[in-house]
């Protein structure tokens, strides 16, 4: 893996809480999923890497640029596409105007070239037909796609997407996955999500964050392998299981340390993820 993003010892406190606690990670080209329960520090990590907030301690580079200096931060931002968790919009702007506004913030001052770029990214997210419609009249899924288009302006080498599929219906989510997969070709994408299925379907690598610390870094297959031999089926919930739930078959799926002779099941990414978290953190996921 060619390293494009490298972070060492990132720490950030909010009041008495360590939102990030000595986080070190490396990312390469392709889509990396950032999994974690609520309050794990995912958004904080993304905001630090996107240079929205500075870390108290630690350092990182993106595509060789260190945001520690004003010049480095500027160069990093020129290569950054960022879709925040709750992207805000000027409601009276049309989709075209909004993306145009973001393009201006990205230093595209030539009107003709900028408008061509706006049309390109709106076409990439399949929104050319509604480019003149006001943001307040677009559906939630369309707004998310406009925000993704805005993030793609200028063909950034590092794309940071904070829970882009939240609130989307299944059809929209599939559409969004296609778009993110396309975006991940030739660039580094860091995707924060609660959805293990997003990671299983999209990501070449996965980072699990909990309590502000990195609990796992590797491929989805490696995370899934953590649950090999630790998932079993039973008629009742096994009290010894770390987590268990009734499935559509009426049987319980248990995750943890199986009793002898247990009816072992094929593990999934979600099983590996649950086993990576501590007890309190699993409850946060549930």
């Amino acid at each position: 893996m060619t390293v494009t993003v490298s972070a060492t010892g990132l720490t950030l406190r909010y009041g008495g809480t360590r939102a990030l606690d000595d986080v070190s990670l490396t990312l390469g080209t392709g889509v990396t999923g950032l999994l974690g329960p609520n309050g794990a520090g995912k958004t904080t990590l993304l905001r630090v890497l996107a240079t929205a907030v500075p870390a108290d301690r630690g350092s990182f580079t993106v595509l060789g640029h260190d945001p520690g200096s004003a010049a480095g931060r500027q160069e990093l931002r020129r290569r950054l596409g960022y879709l925040p968790q709750n992207p805000g919009f000027h409601p009276d702007f049309s989709a075209f105007e909004f993306v145009d506004y973001v393009a201006i913030l990205k230093e595209m001052t030539d009107r003709g070239a900028r408008h061509r770029e706006v049309r390109r990214v709106l076409e990439a997210v399949d929104l050319s037909d509604v480019r003149g419609r006001r943001m307040k009249r677009l559906s939630g899924g369309m707004r998310q796609r406009v925000a993704l288009a805005a993030a793609l302006v200028g063909d950034p080498g590092f794309l940071v997407l904070d829970e882009p599929t939240v609130g989307l219906d299944p059809e929209q989510r599939v559409r969004f996955r296609e778009l993110i997969a396309q975006a991940g070709e030739g660039r580094t994408v860091l995707l924060s999500t609660h959805q293990t299925e997003d990671v299983a379907m999209l990501c070449q690598r996965v980072v699990v964050l909990a309590g502000g610390r990195v609990r796992f870094e590797g491929t989805p297959a490696e995370l899934t392998a953590r649950a090999a031999g630790r998932v079993w089926s039973s008629a009742e919930r096994d009290p010894g299981a770390r987590a268990g739930w009734r499935t559509g078959t009426g049987m319980f799926r248990n995750v943890g340390d199986p009793p002898e002779g247990a009816d072992l099941l094929e593990p999934t990414l979600e099983d590996g993820y649950l086993l990576t978290l501590g007890d309190g953190e699993r409850e946060a996921v549930a």
Binding site: A50, R77, G88, I104, L105, A150
Partner: peptide
């Protein structure tokens, strides 16, 4: 009050200029 603040602050255009 600026709904696009988060996007503006990480943009290469200098925040002070805006």
């Amino acid at each position: 009050l600026d709904p696009t603040y988060e996007m503006a602050v990480v943009a290469p255009m200098h925040g002070f200029r805006l």
